[in-house]
Design a protein around this nucleic acid. Structure first.
Length: 638
RNA sequence: GCCAGAGUAGCUCAGUUGGUAUAGCACCUCACUUGUAAUGAGGACGUCGCGGGUUCAACUCCUGUCUCUGGCUCCA
C-alpha cells in the first residue's frame, strides 16, 4: 500500500506501485491528459516513473510554467531528431530551454532560414506519430561506449559527476539527458523554428563553430499565435524603423556605432534631460562636466589602461598618449580630489551627463541599443560608510520616480562578491550589508545574483519593463572600494583625521541613447505630449486662412509649445493623415468657423475630434498636461 | 572579431539565362481651395555600398573591402 500526499494535504492510497499517470487517472481522465510530469518529493520527474514508497506528489500540467519548460525540452529533442534524419553527418552537442523557447547547438553544415520548412515538416511527422519518450539509465562506461562516435557527447559525459547516466529515447532517436520529458511527442501541440545562427562550442571562439537552431513550442496553437504576434509587434516598434520614419536619428558608414541625432530626436533628448535635471536638482545633486580625452597616466592610475584598454580609443598628441574616456569616473575622482573635504560636506552627489566611447566589437552593434559612443547620466556619490543605506535608498527612490514618469515598471537585482575581487572581507561585508539594508528599507522584492558583482564592489541593477513586457537593464548602483583608494581620496572626520570616502557610481537612464531607443519602442513612436517633438499641427483649410493659422501658431509658440503649420496645397484629409502618421498628439484644423467663433477644433492622436474649445481652455489644459508629464491623451475630457 | 543573410532614387522595393534599371511614397511645377486618415496631371531624382578581376559588354559572375540585420550569456 502506497500513500500519496497531494499539495492540498489530501492523502490517497494505492494498491500497487502507481505511476504518476495512474495517480492522475485516479482523479480524472482530463487531468491525466493534461499532465506532462510530476514533482515527486520535491524533484521533478517523468510522469511514467513508478512510485515505490509513500510520497508527496504535485502533478505538473500543461498550465504550469514547469510543464511548458519540460515540453520545450522535449521539443528540442524532436528538433534534433528531425535534423539528424535530414543531415546524417550532424553531431549533436547541447540543447537547452531558454526564455522564449529552446535551441540546439549542432555541428553541421551552415543552415539558413530557407532550410526551416523541410526541418519543420520532419518535426511535424514526429509529433503526429505521438512517439513515447522512454528513460533508461546506464552506467557511465556504457554511456561512453554508446557515444563512442560522438565526441561532444563523450566530452559532456566525461565531465558528469554521476555514475549513472540517463538516456531519453523516442523512436530511433536517443539523447543524453537529465530529463524529465513529456510522455510522448504528441504533446508538442504548436511548434516553430525561429532563428539560426553560429555559436561556438562552449561559447569559446577557439572551438568549432556550431549551428544554433532556435525554436519555440506551446501547448496550443493560440499561444504560439500570440507569441508570433508579439514578435511582429516588436518588429513594428523597432526603434531603427521608427527613428527613420519620424526623422529622429541616423547612422553613417563614416562613424559606425555612433548615432547622429536629428532636430526632432534632439527635441525628445532635451525633454529627457530637462526632466532628469529637474529630478536630480530636487534630490540634492550638483552637475559637473569632465573632458572626454585624458592622458594615459590617469587611465593607468584608475586601472582602465590595464583592464579596459582593448575597448578604448587612443591618440597621441605632442608625443603624449591620450585615451578617450570609456567611463566618467576617473575624471570625477580628479574633481573630488582637487581640494580637502570635511565630513560635514558628505554626501557629495556629483552628476555628469558624460559622453563616453567604447570600442565594441563590430558584430555587436545594434541601433541605439548597442553603440560605440553614448552619454551616461552618471553620478558619483562620495560618502561615509554610515551613509550607505540612506544614499542607496535615495537613489532607488529617485530611480522609481523617474521610471514611473514614463510608465515603466521595474525590478531589482543585487549582485554580490565575485570570485575575483579586490578589498577585504570586512569591506565587502559592510558594503553588501549596506546595499541589503537599503533594499530592505525600500521594501520591494529583489533577486540576488550570487557572485555577479563587479570586482571592485557589490551592485544593484534595475531592470525596467516596457509596454510589451520586455525587460531591459538600465539603472545600476555600484559601490566602489577601489577608485577612492587609487586616487587617494579623503575627507576629514570629526576628530580631524583623514578618512577614505566610499563611492557609488550610479545611472538611471544608463546610456541615454539606449534609453531613448527603449522609449521609442515602449511608446511605439507615439511619444506623450510633453516629449513629442511637434506637439501641435496647425492645418488651415484653405490658403486664405493661412494668415490666421500663423496668428494662432504665434500665441501657442509664445506659450512654449512646439508647433508646425502644414501649408502645403493638399487636401485637409491628406494633411490630417500625415499629421496622424507623424504621431503629432494634437491637430488643430483651422477654417472659417474657427476664425469667426474664435474657438478651436482639436483632434487628438486617438482620432477623437472636439469642436468649440476656447483658446483659453486649450492652452490651460495643454500646459497643465505637459507640466504634469501625463502619458495619456485625456486632455480635454472633464 | 566569428557565422549566416543583406546593401538598387530621400524612403519602401522590382530587376528573368550578363546587353548601363522598375514602381509607389516623398520632392518640384500646374490645376483644384478642400471640414477630420491619401485630389488630379506633369516633371525631376540613380557612379545599382566601394575597389579589383572575368567579359565585346557586369546591378547581375568571381574576389577583396565597408556598412547593416540576426545570433555568438542560457551547459546532458
Amino acid at each position: 500500500m502506497i500513500n500519496i500526499t497531494f499539495p492540498d494535504g489530501n492523502i490517497k492510497a494505492f494498491e500497487n506501485n502507481p505511476t504518476g499517470l495512474d495517480v492522475a487517472q485516479s482523479i480524472s481522465e482530463g487531468l491525466a491528459r493534461d499532465c506532462v510530469a510530476m514533482e515527486l518529493n520535491d524533484k521533478i520527474v517523468d510522469l511514467k516513473m513508478q512510485i515505490d514508497s509513500d510520497s508527496k506528489i504535485r502533478l505538473i500540467t500543461t498550465r504550469d510554467a514547469e510543464g511548458l519548460e519540460i515540453m520545450r525540452h522535449s521539443a528540442a529533442h524532436v528538433m534534433a531528431d528531425a535534423v539528424l534524419r535530414l543531415y546524417h553527418d550532424a553531431q549533436l552537442t547541447i540543447g537547452p530551454v531558454v526564455e522564449d523557447g529552446f535551441y540546439y547547438d549542432i555541428d553541421m553544415q551552415p543552415l539558413s532560414k530557407d532550410d526551416f520548412p523541410k526541418i519543420e515538416a520532419e518535426i511535424q511527422k514526429i509529433i503526429k506519430a505521438k512517439i513515447p519518450f522512454e528513460r533508461t539509465e546506464v552506467s557511465k562506461s556504457d554511456a561512453m561506449k554508446f557515444y563512442k562516435d560522438e565526441p561532444y557527447k563523450l566530452e559532456i559525459i566525461s565531465e558528469l559527476q554521476d555514475e549513472t547516466i540517463s538516456l531519453y529515447k523516442h523512436g530511433d532517436f536517443t539523447d543524453l539527458c537529465r530529463g524529465p520529458h513529456v510522455p510522448h511527442t504528441g504533446l508538442i501541440k504548436a511548434f516553430k523554428l525561429t532563428k539560426v545562427s553560429g555559436a561556438y562550442w562552449r561559447a569559446d571562439q577557439k572551438n568549432a563553430q556550431l549551428q544554433r537552431i532556435y525554436g519555440t513550442a506551446f501547448f496550443n496553437k493560440k499561444e504560439l499565435k500570440a507569441y508570433l504576434y508579439f514578435i511582429e509587434e516588436a518588429k513594428k516598434r523597432n526603434h531603427r524603423k521608427i527613428g527613420q520614419a519620424l526623422d529622429l536619428f541616423s547612422f553613417y558608414d563614416e562613424a559606425p556605432g555612433m548615432p547622429f541625432f536629428h532636430a526632432k530626436g534632439i527635441s525628445i533628448w532635451n525633454c529627457l534631460l530637462d526632466y532628469w535635471r529637474l529630478e536630480h536638482r530636487a534630490a540634492g545633486y550638483v552637475e559637473t562636466k569632465t573632458p572626454i580625452m585624458l592622458q594615459r597616466s590617469l587611465w593607468e592610475k584608475s586601472g582602465h589602461w590595464e583592464n579596459y584598454r582593448e575597448n578604448m580609443y587612443t591618440s597621441t598628441i605632442d608625443e603624449d598618449e591620450y585615451a578617450i574616456k570609456p567611463m566618467n569616473c576617473p575624471g570625477g575622482m580628479l574633481l573630488f580630489g582637487r581640494r580637502p573635504h570635511s565630513y560635514r560636506e558628505l554626501p557629495v552627489r556629483a552628476a555628469e551627463i558624460g559622453l563616453v566611447h567604447r570600442h565594441e566589437l563590430s558584430g555587436v552593434l545594434a541601433g541605439l541599443f548597442r553603440v560605440r559612443a553614448f552619454h551616461q547620466d552618471d553620478a558619483h556619490i562620495f560618502m561615509t560608510p554610515a551613509q550607505i543605506k540612506d544614499e542607496i535608498l535615495g537613489v532607488l527612490q529617485l530611480t522609481e520616480r523617474i521610471y514611473s514618469t514614463f510608465g515603466l515598471g521595474f525590478h531589482l537585482e543585487l549582485s554580490t562578491r565575485p570570485d575575483k575581487s579586490i578589498g577585504t572581507d570586512a569591506q565587502w561585508e559592510t558594503t553588501t550589508q549596506g546595499l541589503k539594508a537599503a533594499l530592505d528599507a525600500y521594501g520591494r522584492d529583489y533577486k540576488i545574483n550570487q557572485g555577479d558583482g563587479a570586482f571592485y564592489g557589490p551592485k544593484i541593477d534595475v531592470h525596467i519593463k516596457d509596454a510589451l513586457g520586455r525587460t531591459w537593464q538600465c539603472g545600476t548602483i555600484q559601490l566602489d572600494m577601489s577608485l577612492p583608494e587609487r586616487f587617494n581620496l579623503a575627507y576629514i572626520d570629526k576628530n580631524n583625521e583623514k578618512q577614505r570616502p566610499l563611492m557609488i557610481h550610479r545611472v538611471v537612464y544608463g546610456s541615454i541613447e539606449r534609453f531613448f531607443g527603449i522609449l521609442v519602442e515602449h511608446f511605439a513612436g507615439k511619444f506623450p505630449l510633453w516629449m513629442a517633438p511637434v506637439q501641435i499641427a496647425l492645418l488651415a483649410i484653405n490658403d486664405d486662412l493661412a494668415p490666421y493659422a500663423v496668428q494662432v501658431q504665434q500665441t501657442l509658440e509664445k506659450a512654449g509649445l512646439r508647433t508646425e503649420i502644414d501649408s502645403r496645397t493638399e487636401s485637409l484629409n491628406k494633411k490630417i493623415r500625415d499629421a496622424q502618421l507623424g504621431n503629432i498628439p494634437l491637430i488643430l484644423t483651422i477654417g472659417n468657423k474657427e476664425k469667426e467663433s474664435g474657438n478651436l477644433s482639436v483632434r487628438t492622436l486617438d482620432g477623437k475630434v472636439r469642436f468649440g474649445i476656447s483658446h483659453e481652455k486649450f492652452l490651460a489644459r495643454v500646459l497643465e498636461h505637459i507640466k504634469n508629464r501625463e502619458l495619456d491623451l485625456n486632455i480635454f475630457d472633464d
